[in-house]
Write a protein that binds this DNA or RNA. Structure first.
Lengths: 349, 349
DNA sequence: TTGAAAGCGCTACCAG
DNA sequence: CTGGTAGCGCTTTCAA
């Protein structure tokens, strides 16, 4: 029951060596003659010593052996969004390579999240967020440890990993035009820190503070503009990043604007909801209505019809972020490639 | 750049109080007169003090403020299996309620995993595994901290959360019988520490050391036995828990045993692969062939046809495990309910 | 309320 | 290679 009792000094005494040597036997075995080492291990086993105390070692060395991962925009996001999970998979893989654990900063609300950040024994932080004006991010910065930002630019970050979101969205828009769509709707991710789900007016569209939303919006508009379609000709709807919610929004939208024949969704999760909505309304995809997402999640292979998308490699994104956090060179920004993924929701294949 | 420079003592001196009082100002504000407290905070801000040093606090208090989660059977499992992710969601939710972070123990191989366990500053471990004879588990036990086991019985655990796997499988078997299936295949999860994927002979079936496999197997056999179907009349195939793999196994199996009209899969992931295989071979589900999984994952709603299953509440399973780890009462075993989920893969609905 | 001082257990340094 | 020892930064007695 009792916590850790016997300590290194006890072992050292029992083995007739100094504490320093005992420490080396565990931490740097090569520095200790094998004969002495065996004696130390024997004494340790004898006394029931469980190995160096983790927290004491941390304090002494200043290394936590863990990377903190934070999702300031949505604290439940880590284990609910498929893209976040791919990100974590990449992070986990790279951390494993380095013998480092992954700490998920978990909290119920932003205030708790700040405390969670302050209590986390980690060597660096990986932050996935949509914008950088955020108390949680400030709290992380105050810790003065390397901070890698994913999908946003954070001033002073030790590294940044991003997509070319503008290009990705432009690709999606161009593809729908190619497929013959002419009357468009954009299903946007949440545009600012405060949600305003539902139809977006021009003000709201312009107010997007989330970098990802701003860039993708501009990319869509760019693509459509080149076909003579102005932003004011486009229906904009802000959706929560859940298929159920986007399905509901899409139903309302399609009822009110039955002329829409092309839906540009800022995430595959949102796009999948749009497909559900289309099915519910009896709209034929891709004949009547074309739908394309962004992300290229695996679930998109199994939808009915399979979802076209602009894929990104989220696993690699996470891996790179972790690599930067664990590496030396600082201040770099990596921009990942994206690519068109044509499936049944835009074209009969 | 430099690490944390100014320390509590500096702040205390600057504010003209003792270190103890300064500590209290941060940790137990109520014990310090507000006037003094303000002076301390002012000094802190002045000197650029960033708040108590996490590792030092840990060493002193012995609390890590984090729960460790380990998947000894498959270290990549955490971020790839949908059931594991639900588990993590539940764990994350409960930890958030308690202001505790979640540490995922990550490693590339079992040996590294032992090091990862030993380096993890956590207050307790949550272990999801199929069987308990495992070096990683021994390493965790050596840490002498509360250990909650999920889906297996581990001797000496501070708590255990399980399903009634026997009943769950029996339910699945009985349902397929109800639906008219008469010639069965069981797609098993990996049965022992060492994989042996492919057709299982009676020896292999009997050798299952993984508790979940043993129980589910017995449950299936039980159900079918009552219809006069002996275990020897059943085709058994051991599958990796990936749809691609189970699809391949299922194709081979159905080619060799075209008479099969009922597939009992030990997980939904495996069952989804079986559906893919059936489609590939042009078998009509559910008319020609009925398929049922276990788990009730969300993805099963979107397969073609939607997947019948015996659902479990994995989120709640994780939440309960975390609750036990964070709570006081020790040694309990919780057995969660399961329930039949009828969808299109067994019955025209 | 506040102050003084004792460690938490270890690793890294320096001397031999 | 090995021994001695300082000190990582904090919280928490215990006394005043």
């Amino acid at each position: 029951m009792a916590a850790k009792r016997v300590k290194l000094l006890d072992v050292a005494k029992a083995a007739g060596v100094s504490q320093g040597t005992a420490s080396n036997a565990f931490g740097k075995p090569d520095l200790v003659r094998s004969e002495v080492r065996d004696r130390i291990f024997a004494a340790a086993k004898d006394l029931g010593y469980r190995g160096p105390h983790v927290m004491a070692r941390m304090l002494r060395t200043g290394k936590a052996g863990a990377l903190g991962v934070v999702f300031p925009d949505n604290l439940e996001y880590a284990f609910s969004d498929p893209v976040a999970i791919e990100l974590l998979r990449g992070i986990g893989r790279e951390c494993a390579r380095h013998g480092i654990n992954v700490m998920i900063i978990s909290a119920e609300n932003p205030q708790q999240a700040i405390a969670a950040v302050n209590n986390a024994a980690v060597d660096a932080f990986l932050v996935h967020c949509y914008s950088d004006n955020n108390d949680i991010i400030s709290a992380i910065q105050r810790r003065n440890q390397p901070l890698i930002s994913i999908d946003t630019d954070i001033a002073g970050a030790a590294g940044t990993v991003l997509l070319d979101d503008h290009a990705a969205a432009k690709t999606a828009g161009a593809h729908l035009l190619d497929c013959g769509a002419r009357k468009f709707a954009i299903l946007s991710l949440q545009a600012t820190e405060h949600d305003h789900f539902g139809p977006m007016n021009a003000n709201r569209v312009g107010a997007a503070s989330h970098r990802v939303v701003r860039e993708r919006m501009a990319g869509y508009h760019d693509a459509l503009q080149s076909a003579g379609i102005a932003p004011t000709d486009i229906i904009h709807v802000e959706c929560d990043n859940h298929s159920e919610h986007s399905a509901k929004m899409t139903v309302e939208m399609l009822v009110q604007h039955p002329e829409i024949d092309g839906i540009l969704a800022m995430s595959d999760v949102i796009a999948i909801g749009a497909l559900d909505a289309a099915r519910e309304l009896g709209r034929k995809v891709p004949d009547d209505l074309k739908v394309i997402g962004i992300d290229g999640i695996v679930a998109g292979e199994r939808t009915d019809p399979p979802l076209s998308s602009v894929r990104q490699d989220s696993v690699e994104k996470g891996r790179l972020a972790a690599e930067m956090a664990l590496g030396e060179d600082t201040g770099r920004t990596i921009i990942l490639e994206t690519g068109l993924l044509v499936r049944g929701s835009t074209k009969v294949v």
